[in-house]
């Protein structure tokens, strides 16, 4: 028994060392090279630090979406991408809307909200663009919608735990903010 506890102490110490090593190793890339994926306090900080221009944001938010965003994260390496997550207005812990902006021809960032089943996919023309609009369900069978289209040098993707009606209005407000792009 003494050997077991003695061993446990050594083992626990080594695991603590491993934790420390992993944290340092996780930090090194961002220390030696700018542009790694990380959180930012505001959209303005993303613009200022990463020089991503424009950062697409909606002008319209439904009542169910809480402002400001719960999370803003961005990167310029290996390619430019911005992720903005919004919580439900009545539950800060529940993500309801995610907007991603990814440099074209690159894979989109993997999102917290995912369509587990797509029930309908349509080409949706709006304001001179053609978006792919998908309607389906996320986990726990709640209705979800996703909309994606090319805007300037980026591909924008919106996914929301709601009907497509609200999502389309948000998308239209993004385009209205950046006419001619």
């Amino acid at each position: 028994m003494k050997k077991t506890f003695g061993g446990l102490l050594v083992f626990a110490t080594m695991i603590a060392v491993l934790f420390g090593m992993l944290q340092v190793l996780n930090w090194i890339p961002s220390a030696v090279q700018e542009g790694a994926f990380r959180k930012y306090p505001s959209i303005d900080d993303v613009r200022a630090h990463l020089k991503i221009d424009p950062v697409y944001t909606p002008a319209y938010y439904p009542r169910s979406v809480q402002w400001p965003p719960a999370l803003i994260a961005a990167q310029t390496r290996p390619y430019a991408a911005v992720l903005t997550e919004f919580s439900k207005s009545d539950d800060r812990n529940e993500t309801i809307l995610v907007i991603t902006q990814t440099a074209r021809a690159h894979p989109p960032l993997a999102l917290k909200i995912q369509l587990t089943e797509v029930r309908e996919t349509v080409q949706y023309p709006f304001k001179g663009r053609v978006a792919v609009l998908e309607v389906g369900v996320c986990r726990r069978e709640e209705q979800c919608s996703r909309m994606a289209w090319d805007e300037g040098d980026f591909r924008l993707s919106l996914i929301m735990r709601s009907s497509p009606v609200e999502l389309v209005r948000i998308a239209e407000s993004i385009v209205a903010q950046h006419p001619g792009r």
Partner: peptide, 13 residues
């Protein structure tokens, strides 16, 4: 991407 941000180690970096 959010999970990766808060992960103990993200090899993608």
């Amino acid at each position: 991407a959010l999970f990766r941000l808060d992960a103990l180690f993200d090899i993608g970096r």
